[in-house]
Computed example of a mutant assay.
Amino acid sequence: MPTEAYLGYCKQNIATFLGEVKEVLFVPYAGVTFSYDDYAKSVADALSPLGIKVTGIHTVEDKQKAVAEAASIMVGGGNTFELLHQLYENGLVDLINEKVSKGTPYIGWSAGSNMACPTIKTTNDMPITMPKSFDALNLIPFQINPHYTEERIPNHGGETRPLRIEEFLTKNTDMAVLGLPEGCMLEIHGKSMKYIGGHAGKLFINAKENKTIDENSDLSYLLG
């Protein structure tokens, strides 16, 4: 968040979610204009006061083994298309899905939250690379639109975020989209899901129907 240290507002949420887990396998593949080493160091520096050790997956020779043995998996933000491309290139998409489905904690922000969805079709990013597929980790049965806002730049003729989501839902009629504003998150344990944050979210049920999501709302029903 602006004016705050990196991961400042959510560090305690991360620590609480991980509980006794103190080791994180960090996936920096969404980083494009900065090095993976710098990215991993930023995350490690932010979490070290909590006693959490961060290992960048890019530093590990056998990446599939690293996922299989990970105590927790964390995926950072950046470019969603590049992130998914690298996950496919390294044969990690199905492995992460399987690992998390068995109970391994997963934490993602921005592109990392897009990655938890069935597809990356509701990302805000430019397709700078072409992944093998738009199919993502499929950890949740609905789509997230991170950094959600309804603001419109004066004299700007481009589509608003709600209109972009309406376009998606017009062509993908079986999928709901949750607009997740800055500083807000979803905490999921099994079949329980809670909306956390100081700003209201927006749940797009279909192209013509949506509703406001208030802080601490129980959204477990979205998990099916």
Results as ranks from 00 to 15, higher is better:
T129N: 01
M115T: 03
M185W: 06
G183C: 08
L137T: 11
Y106D: 02
E187T: 14
G112L: 07
P146M: 06
K171Q: 12
R164A: 09
N114A: 08
P118D: 11
K121W: 01
P181D: 10
G158Y: 09
A176F: 02
G103K: 12
D135P: 06
P105A: 12
T173H: 11
A176D: 04
T119D: 08
R161Y: 03
W109S: 05
W109V: 03
L178F: 12
F168C: 06
L139D: 11
K132M: 12
N124V: 03
L139S: 05
P146E: 05
I128L: 13
T104L: 03
M126A: 04
C117I: 06
S133D: 15
A116H: 00
G112N: 09
T149I: 11
Q143K: 01
N155L: 12
G103C: 09
D125N: 11
A176R: 15
A111E: 12
E150N: 07
E151D: 11
G183Y: 11
R161F: 07
T170C: 06
Q143I: 01
G108T: 02
I165Y: 02
A111N: 10
N114Q: 10
C117L: 04
T173P: 01
T122N: 04
I153T: 14
L169F: 09
M130F: 02
I107L: 14
I144R: 00
D135H: 09
T122D: 07
T149R: 03
P105E: 15
E159N: 06
N124T: 09
P118Q: 12
M130I: 13
P162R: 03
A111Y: 11
G157K: 15
G157M: 12
P181H: 11
I128V: 15
E167C: 08
Y148S: 03
A111I: 02
Y148T: 03
P154V: 06
I140A: 03
G112A: 09
G158K: 07
L139H: 07
I128G: 06
T122R: 01
E167A: 12
L178K: 00
V177W: 02
D174E: 15
K171T: 15
D125F: 05
D135L: 05
G158C: 04
M130S: 13
H147Y: 07
F134W: 07
M115I: 13
D135T: 14
R164I: 14
A176N: 05
L137R: 01
V177L: 08
N124Y: 06
S101P: 00
E187C: 05
G158N: 12
D174M: 06
T170Y: 05
